[in-house]
Design a protein around this nucleic acid. Structure first.
Lengths: 194, 194
DNA sequence: ATCGTAGGCCAACACGCATTGGCCAACAAG
DNA sequence: CTTGTTGGCCAATGCGTGTTGGCCTACGAT
């Protein structure tokens, strides 16, 4: 009945706020930043456009609130070193299938600079530390993390955004079978001579 | 003095038409479809916005004319089978560095459905046939081509669009050293069991 | 019962956009 | 020299956008 902690006053409008966020994620994921209009988001949330402004200030604020996301990457210490690639790929795939926020973030990151900045932040805050613990030479961690992200984001791009038919029809297990060795290689293989 | 063939009447306005196309490519590459305005393109081409409409009909027509591109992929027959991965990666990297059209196409493909459709067309017209000749079982060609494009487009995404710092700073030779084996593997390795 | 406040909607604003039609100058053919 | 045509600009239109302020209703504390 009451709020869980004193930090959350439990406003009466929380349901509306949540409905706005969910609609925003869906529209941003489907249309990207510019084409997702406040009006369309409000209509989908079944409220007035002005409410969005009242609760989130402006469109940028709404976007920031809608894509505050945690990848929940597994802890590097808990991973068997040889299974890191497979674990990462399956985790990513799972997150992406169940959570449209990631597609929204990718779509927006490509057109909006604030979105790109947020993706860079997620990269360096969440993927990079993991690479730092797994790869042989910590100095190579940024490059290796960049390679891993290029493969994982490239899959998301072709499968969920551009919708290349063969990429869409691949089974998750098949994707894992192909990508896990690649990611594992990028993380732990010795640096190939140029 | 005269036109090369009867098909091209060699209008007096060809220089302007070309200037518009170049400006359009640059703006589409930098801003994406929605944020690249006719006004900005016209200003950069140093002509009036109405000229763009006169010559290309509307914004979609301009985009279609601006990104008519040929990847100029090497012929599959001329490639030593073991070198296909390396050849593809270096070719892609080279095309992307010198030609902003590709970045424009990627940026637009993510937000605009016509752009996505064009990328799917390039995929199936240019990359898929190459995979069909290189991979062991032609029936697996679509899946293998999709995997290759996921890695190559993922690199372009992180390096040229999202601008992850480590991806930007990687040297082309280093990229090739890492990605060539991956692409080669996707094209020619036996299908890994799920 | 009263009253302050929060949740909600409506109507409007200013702006930037793609797009249009009319006008003017320069060229080229007669 | 005249005349039709082409290349170009200017000004305006209509629309959709993010954003704002005022008004009404219903709740919650006193």
């Amino acid at each position: 009945m009451n709020e869980s902690t004193s930090a959350t006053p439990a406003r009466r409008s929380d349901a509306t706020r949540q409905a706005i966020l969910e609609a925003a994620r869906e529209r941003f994921a489907a249309d990207g930043y510019e084409r997702a209009t406040i009006r369309a988001i409000a209509q989908q949330a079944k409220i007035d456009p002005s409410m969005v402004m009242r609760y989130y200030g402006n469109k940028e604020g709404l976007f920031a609130a809608a894509v505050a996301i945690d990848l929940k990457l597994p802890d590097a210490g808990s991973l068997p070193r040889g299974e890191a690639g497979r674990a990462l790929v399956t985790h990513f795939l799972h997150q992406w299938e169940e959570n449209e926020v990631l597609t929204a973030l990718l779509r927006v990151g490509v057109t909006n600079d604030a979105g790109a900045e947020r993706m860079r932040g997620i990269f360096s805050d969440q993927l990079l530390p993991l690479a730092r613990r797994l790869c042989p030479d910590p100095e190579q961690a940024p490059a290796r993390a960049a390679l891993v992200s290029s493969q994982l984001l490239g899959l998301a791009l072709t499968r969920y955004v551009l919708c290349f038919p063969p990429a869409v029809h691949l089974h998750p297990e098949e994707i894992t079978a192909w990508l896990a060795p690649t990611v594992q290689h990028y993380l732990t293989a010795p640096h190939p001579g140029a």
